[in-house]
Design a protein around this nucleic acid. Sequence first.
DNA 1: AAGCGTTATGTATTTAAATATATATCGGAC
DNA 2: GTCCGATATATATTTAAATACATAACGCTT
Lengths: 112, 112
Amino acid sequence: MKSIKVKCWIETNGDKLYGPGPHELLRNIKAEGSLSKAAEKMQLSYRKAWDIVQQLNKHSEEPLVILRKGGKTGGGAEVTIHAQEVMEAYNKLQKKLQEVTKEEKQLLKILN
Amino acid sequence: MKSIKVKCWIETNGDKLYGPGPHELLRNIKAEGSLSKAAEKMQLSYRKAWDIVQQLNKHSEEPLVILRKGGKTGGGAEVTIHAQEVMEAYNKLQKKLQEVTKEEKQLLKILN
DNA sequence: AAGCGTTATGTATTTAAATATATATCGGAC
DNA sequence: GTCCGATATATATTTAAATACATAACGCTT
């Protein structure tokens, strides 16, 4: 019925840089090899997905996503090793936070 | 420059029940003794604040906020003891989560 | 050179959230 | 019984976010 949710993200100068949305997008890009397919998979407009990628690459010294256009496949999207490190670290952090909320049942009890 | 943010809230049947917004509202109600003043203090429309209070009371067996109209003061808002327990439990949880993010600097390092 | 599947990007439209506005109600004080 | 300061609530307006749409560019393949 009632449940505790937790969410974490990284901000830079007050605007959101990396969070659940970008994280899912990176996972999808890795799985699909295509930005448009990745966006579709999570019911996100291509435009928005593209914006997210620009934001990510803009605020990281090394690029997180490499986009290519043309070629025999028409183009594609690739998640860099660097990005995969970010994803893994984010996963770990999320897991830690989840564990804290699992221990904490008091709030739910009080609200009944 | 870059920083990790964390947020927790309670959902019931998929919609948000208690989180940073309601929490701040309760604090303000407690300080002001008035829903309209509490809303104003956090730059929230009275309408929205009132809706939040309805939502909170609707989903908790015991009411969290008591609203009164009329009388010598014109009316007022009061945070119940029950609500104060919720607030305290929420504060504790948030503090715990904050500590986890403080330990976790790896993500920031990777994103540089 | 035409066709393809993708990325690239500006602009228009839609959608949802929040706010603003207006009016009613309550109950004590005078 | 009128005024006051608060809550109560419907409706209209504004705002911001997301989406939709349109078009161009790219580079390989044929």
